[in-house]
């Protein structure tokens, strides 16, 4: 059976809008954020995301796991970017060195070193802000959209019946997958399996994950077959479909959509004018002696 996300009706900004309006706004927000690399512009988007987060009525306890996992992931990759400078090469042509750290030892004649430049530093900070804003806005969706409305929301956004329902199922498939994973993990632990103790080379390690990966995958496949049968047996897809729930826009929804579109148009205009590109504060450059 498909599990749903931990949605609860709450008094919050996000839930006071029609889900379609929110998805449109979310799309505009996403596209707009991706147009910028300038930390000053990105701060605006981050602020927006934080406002939505703090008015969402979701308690820290409820999203702690998700936030820590995704937050940790983003921090880790931003740090990696900081170390390597990868991905930023297209944005800046020259680097101003703040400091160069050299290891006091050699490995096979190679001396590990780390070049800290103003550009690398700013790039990783900008990336952190960008990805974090998007992540926050995305995490909020499953907590705030009523699962009973998934299908009709996508239908209302203009997707065909079948695809809208498929999207509905897909949204619910993710938490279901999580539940199956936990059950499998439990079943294997009861057979003395310990994930923490997996050792050996990469290939051996991957092979030792089979007790988890195989049942979860098979379950997902068998589960989808059941769902297809259940849908077929109740005449799904024979023609146009009625959606029992009817969504109606309120004035505030039009306002939100308008705001979203305006945000996107302005963002596109800015980026066409060349504003909002990668920015390194003058102070930092001065520090580098430029």
């Amino acid at each position: 059976m498909l599990v749903t996300w931990r949605y609860r009706p709450r008094k919050s900004i996000i839930q006071s809008f029609d889900p379609r309006a929110w998805i449109i706004f979310f799309g505009c927000y996403l596209a707009s954020t991706l147009l910028f690399w300038d930390l000053r512009y990105l701060s605006f988007f981050l602020l927006l995301a934080l406002i939505v987060l703090f008015t969402s009525g979701i308690r820290w306890k409820e999203i702690r796991k998700a936030m820590l996992f995704i937050g940790g992931f983003i921090l880790f990759f931003s740090f990696l970017t900081f170390l390597t400078g990868r991905g930023g090469m297209e944005l800046y042509a020259e680097e101003h060195v703040l400091r160069e750290l050299k290891a006091s030892f050699h490995i096979l004649g190679w001396q590990p070193s780390l070049l800290i430049s103003a550009e690398k530093t700013m790039f990783s900070i900008s990336m952190l802000a960008r990805v974090f804003s998007i992540a926050v806005m995305t995490i909020l969706i499953p907590y705030s959209l009523n699962p009973a409305l998934y299908g009709v929301t996508f239908r209302g956004l203009g997707l065909p019946d079948k695809i809208a329902y498929a999207m509905d199922l897909t949204m619910r498939f993710i938490p279901t997958f999580g539940r199956d994973f936990t059950l499998t993990m439990d079943a294997q632990r009861a057979r003395g399996y310990e994930l923490e103790k997996i050792s050996g080379g990469l290939a051996a390690q991957v092979r030792k994950l089979a007790p988890l990966v195989v049942p979860v995958t098979i379950h997902a496949i068998a589960g989808s077959e059941d769902i297809i049968d259940a849908m077929d047996l109740r005449a799904f897809g024979i023609g146009p479909r009625t959606w029992l729930i009817k969504l109606t826009y309120k004035p505030r929804d039009y306002f939100l959509i308008g705001f979203g579109i305006l945000l996107l148009v302005i963002s596109i205009a800015f980026s066409l004018w060349g504003w909002g590109k990668f920015w390194v504060p003058a102070g930092l450059l001065a520090l580098a002696g430029a």
Binding site: L183, D186, A190, P211, L212, P215, H219, A222
Partner: peptide
């Protein structure tokens, strides 16, 4: 411990 559903453990 034998779980209720075999499909969660066979691999």
């Amino acid at each position: 411990y034998v779980f209720q559903s075999p499909s969660h453990m066979l691999f």
